[in-house]
């Protein structure tokens, strides 16, 4: 793997064992001149307690819904001053929910920033509450009987903004994520990556299994890796699973996680339908933006 040797996330940081953000943040090290903007979330904790700090790049911690707007201001100032910078917003699905108008607005303006939503499919930092991207039927502390609402397709919505770059990624496939970040560094304008980040305490699985479960999500077809830069392509790790028969049964993915405990066969059938709809959408996009 050609992963960066030097990490912007320093050793000794207080991330949980098996934390997916810690994997994703290390991958950001391939970008040059990074200025990191972090809204409230788990990464606020990972950043460490003053006077110590866990990052070797400048980090600006900001209120929940403000991150992408703050990044817009930074980018505008750097442009004015002729400073070369990669302004990167690193946010969770919580900040993406509360700050969605902000992401959308900055996308419409095609701000010269990179937004990575590291999505652990619930508000984890406040203790596992349901979010817009929480998986169908998943139990959280605010959906103890399982999530009854839809799961929002954030990357799909961003694609509809017709920005220069949108991709999904997974902490289970870091090489793919790094490749996408490298691609991102060659493009200017608004770039968006939706990173799938399985959370051991939030999803109730052993902290040694983060990568394994992230991969099961892809192998079962529950999470699809794709990339759009004018052309829409299904990314290599997901390609084999265009063929439904190659996929690992969805049950294999679901049974590994405590958040799905007690799902009925009917529930699983319903989820399968949702996953199928998502595939249809992605395959249509691939055909549309050849």
């Amino acid at each position: 793997m050609s992963l960066p040797m030097e990490s912007i996330l320093l050793p000794g940081n207080p991330a949980c064992q098996g934390c997916p953000h810690a994997l994703g943040l290390r991958a950001l090290s391939v970008l040059e001149n990074v200025v990191l903007v972090v809204p409230a979330g788990c990464t606020t904790i990972i950043s460490g307690v003053h006077p110590k700090a866990s990052f070797s790049v400048p980090v600006l911690h900001v209120p929940f819904a403000s991150a992408v707007a703050v990044a817009s201001g930074l980018a505008a100032a750097y442009k004015q001053e002729g400073v070369e910078a990669n302004v990167v917003v690193w946010m969770g699905d919580g900040a993406a929910d509360i700050g969605f108008a902000t992401i959308s607005g900055a996308a419409v303006r095609n701000e010269d920033i990179i937004v990575v939503v590291s999505d652990n499919e619930a508000y984890m930092n406040t203790g596992i509450q349901s979010s817009g991207t929480t998986f169908w039927k998943a139990k959280t502390t605010t959906s103890p009987g399982g999530k009854s609402e839809e799961k929002k397709d954030l990357a799909g919505i961003m694609l509809m903004h017709r920005i220069p770059y949108v991709a999904t990624a997974s902490v289970g496939y870091l090489q793919d994520f790094v490749n996408k970040l490298r691609r991102v560094s060659e493009i200017r304008g608004f770039r968006f990556i939706h990173l799938h980040s399985p959370c051991p305490p939030g999803w109730r699985f052993d902290s040694s299994k983060t990568v394994e479960i992230a991969r099961l999500a892809v192998k079962s077809g529950a999470w699809i890796l794709w990339e759009y830069d004018g052309r829409f392509r299904i990314s290599s790790p997901s390609k084999p699973y265009k063929d439904e028969t190659k996929r690992v049964p969805l049950e294999e993915y679901i049974k590994t996680q405590g958040r799905f405990r007690g799902l009925s066969g009917e529930d699983i059938e319903e989820i399968k339908k949702k996953v199928e709809e998502q595939w249809k959408f992605v395959l249509t996009m691939e055909k549309t933006f050849k």
Binding site: V34, T44, H50, P51, P58, V59, L60, H61
Partner: peptide, 14 residues
């Protein structure tokens, strides 16, 4: 806050 100047602003403190 400028690239290359590794300051962390607004993080948790005592």
């Amino acid at each position: 806050v400028l690239p290359g100047n590794a300051v962390t602003i607004g993080n948790i403190g005592p």
